[in-house]
Design a protein around this nucleic acid. Structure first.
Length: 457
RNA sequence: GGCGCGAUAGCAAAGCGGUUAUGCACCGGAUUGCAAAUCCGUGUAGGUGGGUUCGACUCCCGCUCGCGCCUCCA
């Protein structure tokens, strides 16, 4: 029985799909004008695991993750780069896909782009206007009137009168209320625009998600996810738009992942303290980054640092070492087996991946003791639900960081052969010398019954 | 000012009203030519002050500290 922490209810709730046997999920994806940072990696990985576990639970999943390919920052960046908007966005969509693939993130069923859904957005705005929730201000923008929508604030727990609109930002005087938000921005000189009943313009940020989610998933749908920072105002506004237009509930379960931090501060583009996935993968194996993310619960803050990744790498190495020692059969999961049972209970408890990982380590210890191919197979299969341990152990253990000028496999193997010869002649001093040399180059040797194997330290 | 979250051992991070989390690091032993890996074992916890309870890291209240949202942000 799967339980999900629902941000709307502020408690864990049993997951009951709208349509039995199906799960429809929408996650707010990226605005594509720059490389993805680790915060984005967290969203990608966390909801990838959610999606995998829903499928593992036997549900027919429709997973949608949108791409915001038109907004102020994109326009600005394209202008700075002296390139077209589509050149810019297509390039970064490519990088995003590369990062996601490296992290073992499966492709969502749909990846709609905002620019492809303008008609649906206009239709939605029309409905809101008809329902008396939208108005055009003198400057040409179409705004949503938050005070006319009764439930405004229910997701974020905010009361309209407590919000300090304009305290940190100039209030747009065209709005009837400072908290009203833009549905349609009138076109300014030199900006891209679409024709509309309210004049030429482009969509406000929030409207795309309302339009794309209902178009692809219907309304209501089951799960809407995203980073915690989107809870207000973005998701609050989505609710206002979608429920204001369709007069029925928008989403049943809201999921918000916690932030990635650096030095106990939120990592964000505005603070400038972010690390890109691209950058990190030069130093660390992508699976290490994925494991690092899944070692913490998705709602907790996750502090990023190199030493934490080093730690994650050591831990993941332990799992692969266990697998290396045993030829795992590829058997279907035995859910009655105690570790599998514990794993699935952990995942059913609001996707408790740290607990799920702990069972993997217990299982690895068991594999080390028993050398059981059946248990090794269990380990592999369970880890697979987290998108982990899917590679050949040797490949993982011997993988060199992309940026390193480390010893080549051939060099390492010839040194190992030289050491074997020295050992055979009982010249241990020479053998140890070679081993020390390799260790200095980041290569650890392990003498076993079947000869010497090696891995990168 | 409003609303919300958190405080666990050297570091990271979970569950749980009473019985080993887990990983990294550390220590002792087995194994090894010596190592590495592995196994066995030990140690190190739950911010602070109260309360509830036979019993609290776990529930309740206060306090302190930290973080987040209220502005674009995953």
């Amino acid at each position: 029985m799967l339980k999900i922490y629902n941000s709307l209810a502020r408690e864990k709730q049993v997951f009951v799909p709208t349509t039995a046997g199906c799960a429809r999920m929408y996650v707010c994806g990226m605005t594509v004008y720059d490389y993805c940072h680790i915060g984005h990696a967290r969203v990608l990985v966390v909801f990838d695991v959610v999606q995998r576990w829903l499928r593992a639970s036997g549900l027919a999943v429709t997973y949608v993750r949108n791409i915001t390919d038109i907004d102020d920052k994109i326009i600005k960046r394209a202008l700075e780069n002296k390139e077209s908007i589509s050149q810019l966005t297509n390039r970064f969509i490519g990088f995003m896909n590369d990062d996601a693939a490296a992290l073992g993130v499966e492709r969502p069923d749909h990846e709609p782009r905002a620019t492809e859904y303008v008609p649906q957005m206009l239709e939605l705005i029309g409905r809101l206007e008809k329902n008396g929730l939208a108005y055009q201000s003198p400057n040409g923008d179409v705004n949503f009137s938050v005070r006319k929508f009764p439930g405004y604030g229910k997701l974020s727990g905010k009361a309209l009168d407590d919000l300090r609109a304009g305290e940190r930002v100039d209030v747009d005087t065209g709005k009837e209320d400072p908290l009203d938000f833009v549905l349609w921005k009138h076109a300014k000189e030199g900006e891209p625009f679409w024709a509309s009943p309210w004049g030429s313009g482009r969509p406000g940020w929030h409207i795309e998600c309302s339009a794309m989610s209902s178009d692809l998933l219907g309304q209501p749908f089951d799960i809407h996810g995203g980073g915690q920072d989107l809870q207000f105002p973005h998701h609050e506004n989505e609710i206002a738009q979608s429920e204001g237009a369709h007069d029925c509930r928008f989403v049943n379960y809201w999921m918000h992942n916690g932030f990635v931090r650096v030095d106990d501060e939120k990592m964000s583009k505005s603070l400038g303290n972010f690390f890109t996935i691209h950058e990190i993968l030069k130093k660390y194996d992508p699976e290490v980054l994925r494991f690092f993310i899944l070692r913490a619960h998705y709602r907790s803050p996750l502090n990023y640092s190199d030493s934490h990744l080093d730690d994650a790498r050591q831990a993941l190495t332990r799992l692969y070492v266990a697998l290396k020692a045993v030829d795992a059969d590829l058997l279907p999961i035995d859910w009655e087996e105690p570790h599998a049972c514990r794993f699935s209970q952990a995942m059913d408890d609001d996707f408790n991946t740290p607990e799920a990982c702990a069972t993997l380590f217990d299982l690895a210890a068991e594999v080390n003791r028993s050398k059981s191919p059946t248990l090794a197979s269990q380990l592999r299969a369970l880890a697979g639900f987290l998108g982990l341990l899917r590679r050949d152990p040797q490949t993982f253990l011997q993988a060199a960081p992309t940026s390193s000028g480390e010893l080549s496999v051939e060099q390492i193997e010839s040194l190992i052969a030289a050491r074997a010869a020295a050992k055979k002649g009982k010249d241990y001093a020479a053998a140890d010398q070679i081993r020390a040399e390799l260790l200095a180059a980041g290569v650890v040797l392990e003498d076993g019954a079947k000869g010497t194997s090696w891995r990168r330290a």
